[in-house]
């Protein structure tokens, strides 16, 4: 059931009509197929989320190709904006976290930062109004790409022994402590790390969308011919607007944090810990 169904089923549902508050749950993240077809025995279901994801990719590609189609020494217009974004990722994330040898990883981080930001931003775009990253599969895919980048990178740069040895047997610890430390390090570095990397982004967007939906439905539900109803409805509406602004901040912050953590993991793979 999608959000429109929730709203449609409760159109007559107001305060005092005895139906109770139709609180939104996880079901508002299930979308009906827009279209589905079969390609070589594989069923492809197009939903709103898929469309928005492709739209985000197309917008990012389109904007940056447009911005850098004829780069000039003195940037103007769109190129200025594009360079600002690039410098933010290069100087603010890659060089700050990874250091001098961080420049080769700027395109990787840059793509992640802007794609995730735009995917998150779809949550407050009118008519789209659902963050693409609030569907768990998408942050999982992002986190997996980061995971299968930094683990082989660490093995390649430090060698298998150097990388896993440094990670699982941190130096400068009494030998007996390894009984306790090694399983913990294994768990926290190789299992919990990618899991929280995905969950952090997903849960923030999930919670934010649910919060906005709750207050929007509350504004609709409380709308009735009574003083308390009208006041409550107006208050809920204002809160929903305020939360939209707050979400805009969270969306940027989460894209930034995701990229920052990706840079931290890559940095850990490049340089052995001392």
């Amino acid at each position: 059931m999608s959000l429109s169904n929730v709203v449609a089923s409760g159109l007559d549902c107001h305060l005092n009509s005895g139906c109770g508050f139709p609180a939104p749950g996880a079901e508002i993240f299930n979308f009906d197929d827009i279209a589905h077809f079969t390609i070589v025995n594989t069923e492809v279901h197009l939903t709103k989320i898929t469309v928005l994801l492709f739209l985000s990719v197309a917008l990012i590609l389109g904007f940056f190709i447009y911005a850098f189609r004829k780069p000039k020494l003195v940037p103007r217009g769109a190129q200025n904006v594009g360079e600002m974004g690039y410098l933010f990722v290069r100087d603010g994330i890659a060089r700050e976290i990874i250091g001098k040898d961080g420049d080769p990883y700027v395109p990787f981080l840059f793509a992640f930062f802007f794609l995730i930001w735009l995917c998150n931003f779809m949550g407050i775009v009118p008519f789209a109004q659902v963050p693409v990253t609030s569907i768990f599969a998408i942050p999982v895919a992002f986190a997996l790409i980061v995971y299968i980048t930094w683990v082989p990178l660490g093995v390649y740069k430090q060698g298998f022994r150097g990388f896993f040895g440094g990670m699982l047997f941190p130096p400068g610890v009494p030998k007996a402590m390894y009984v306790l430390l090694t399983p913990l390090e294994f768990l926290s570095n190789l299992i919990v790390r990618p899991a929280t990397h995905a969950i952090r982004l997903f849960a923030n967007m999930f919670a934010g969308h649910l919060l906005i939906a709750t207050f929007s439905i509350a504004a609709f539900y409380l709308l009735s011919a009574s003083v308390i109803g009208l006041l409550g409805s107006a208050a809920s509406f204002i809160v929903a607007i305020a939360l939209t602004g707050f979400e805009a901040l969270i969306q940027f912050l989460q894209a930034y944090i995701f990229t920052l953590l990706a840079a931290v993991y890559i940095s850990g793979a490049l340089h052995a810990e001392h």
Binding site: E96, I199, I257
Partner: peptide, 19 residues
């Protein structure tokens, strides 16, 4: 930078509790 990093790591626990 480090502040936001620490914030992200602490916040993950609350979010797991939420999900």
């Amino acid at each position: 930078q480090n502040m936001i990093l620490g914030f992200a790591l602490a916040e993950a626990l609350a979010l797991i509790g939420f999900v």
